[in-house]
């Protein structure tokens, strides 16, 4: 079998007395959508923060495409091909929609110690950025300042920025957070389109979306992975039902 894209082994993160990540093991296979679900406070975002490099784990290792990245800084992981969308929309509010994406493109188009040429009119940034906006259906808002976009559009832009870095692995931290049913459905459609071409790790509370998208699911409770399997297995798993799914399943 192929080595997984991302391999997490024995990951531990403590905040004082609280163990937020408790000896977590996780394999993410190439091309799959791997959902991580769990009740609030299960340590999902803490896990993502360690995968992206914002938090240093206390123990354990993270391997990406066969390379140990446990101690790499955030920007270096991005260049290896890990991208992240934030749970709380994290965009550049005073930039236009297009400029937001152009910045993402720029991050992966060589260094930025270029002091003279106008960046906004540079086709090497504009064209890929426009393409990314078209992909998520935001092209008509290209010249709009990001701060006036709707919540749903912010979420789309959030994803588009991550996509514009051409990642091999996309970490999605609650992409449907705060969305109405219509926007959620649009997001599911979008994620379906890119499914297969980019490996995804999806954290989401919307179970309909999770079961519609995920190839495999890991259930996290108190920082510990209690089960991993295909959606049907997870649905049937007694331990999971008790811990999390309740009457929903």
């Amino acid at each position: 079998m192929l080595e997984p894209v991302l391999k997490v082994e024995g990951l531990v993160k403590r905040f004082g007395g609280l163990v937020a990540t408790d000896n977590l093991n996780l394999d993410i296979r190439e091309g799959e959508v791997h959902a991580v679900i769990g009740p609030n406070g299960a340590g999902k975002t803490t896990m993502i923060s360690q995968l992206i490099g914002e938090l240093r784990p206390d123990a354990g290792s993270i391997r990406f495409l066969g390379q140990d990245i446990t101690h790499l800084p955030v920007h270096a992981r991005s260049h290896l091909g890990i991208a992240r969308s934030f749970q709380i929309t994290s965009i550049f509010l005073n930039f236009t929609t297009l400029e937001n994406i152009m910045l993402a493109v720029q991050a992966h188009d060589g260094h930025s110690f270029r002091f003279w040429k106008d960046a906004r009119s540079d086709p090497r940034l504009r064209e890929p950025a426009m393409a990314a906006l078209e992909q998520v259906g935001l092209a008509h808002r290209a010249e709009t300042v990001a701060s006036v976009l709707s919540h749903g559009e912010h979420r789309q832009l959030e994803i588009a920025m991550a996509l514009a870095t051409r990642p091999k692995l996309l970490l999605l931290d609650e992409p449907m957070a705060g969305m109405g049913p219509e926007d959620s459905a649009r997001m599911v459609t979008l994620l379906r389109q890119i499914k297969g071409s980019i490996t995804m790790l999806l954290i989401e509370h919307d179970m309909d979306a999770v079961f519609a998208l995920a190839d495999r699911i890991t259930v996290l409770v108190y920082g510990r992975g209690i089960a991993t399997g295909e959606p049907d297995e997870i649905r049937r798993n007694e331990q999971v039902r008790q811990a999390y799914l309740g009457d929903e399943a």
Binding site: S78, A83, R84, L103, A104, A107, M161
Partner: peptide, 17 residues
Amino acid sequence: MVLQGAKSNDRRMATLG
């Protein structure tokens, strides 16, 4: 652009690479 992006949101800038 990098300078202004970092003023607005340096966490995101790092995540972008």
